[in-house]
Amino acid sequence: MTLAARAITLEIGGRVLVEGLDLSVSPGAVTVVVGPNGAGKSTLLRALCGLLPLEHGQVTLRGTPLSSVAPRARARAIAYLPQQTPAAPGLTVRDAVLLGRLPHRSRLAGPSADDHARVGTSLERVGMAAFTERRLDSLSGGERQRVMLARMLATEADVMVLDEPTAALDVRHALDLLETLRALAREGRAVVLALHDLPLADAFADQVVCLDARGTTRVGPPCKVLSPDTVQAVFGAPFDRDDDGVLRLQLPDGAAVTSG
């Protein structure tokens, strides 16, 4: 149990997004957070990373409350990718990935040979080694996301938290990214990500956290949490499961969509 939330309540502007959530994130597993727009997916992820001060409940990292972990130690343990990364004009792929090594360096030290080596292996892992000297702002959305993933890998964190990493990607790139994330989880990392595509969430999650915009949370395996009834209640959209248990969107004319 790498990262655990105990009885956390999250509010924004007096509106309760999450109430009394208990959640454990374990190595090897992919946890997917789903919920309608504004349900608090991003807020929950930020809280799990320690980016948000908590008023109720606490998040622990290997048993230690996150609020008492030093920022750099926390950064070495949890890597985070926000929903949007600013343009960063002029920043090269190499320098962007090197930033992932910052938590491992003292303030005044420059990057070591080891840092550079890890940048190389991280970029290779996501298939972006050929782009090392390119500028980040010259890449496509999918390429940028892979570089950002390499940046997280370079940190060598046990927990990786990603906020809708597939939001700007087409299906092929989204699938590639999710495959990579699942592989990374299987290597022993805990992966937490927010997704808005329910069939994809259903297909890739080992554990689903479903937020309903009214403070209620459901946590469990996808087949239990993402039942057609729950999805109808939370999202207001008709889904069903086919004979193989695959989650499908039911269109009014009877057609079914499994992923999009």
């Binding site: 920022p71 985070y80 360096r105």
Partner: peptide, 19 residues
């Protein structure tokens, strides 16, 4: 180093250990 990290936005910078 903090300024380097800030290039990717303040959220990422904080997640990288920047105070």
């Amino acid at each position: 180093q903090d300024l380097d990290a800030l290039q990717l936005g303040s959220d990422t910078a904080v997640s990288l250990g920047v105070d």
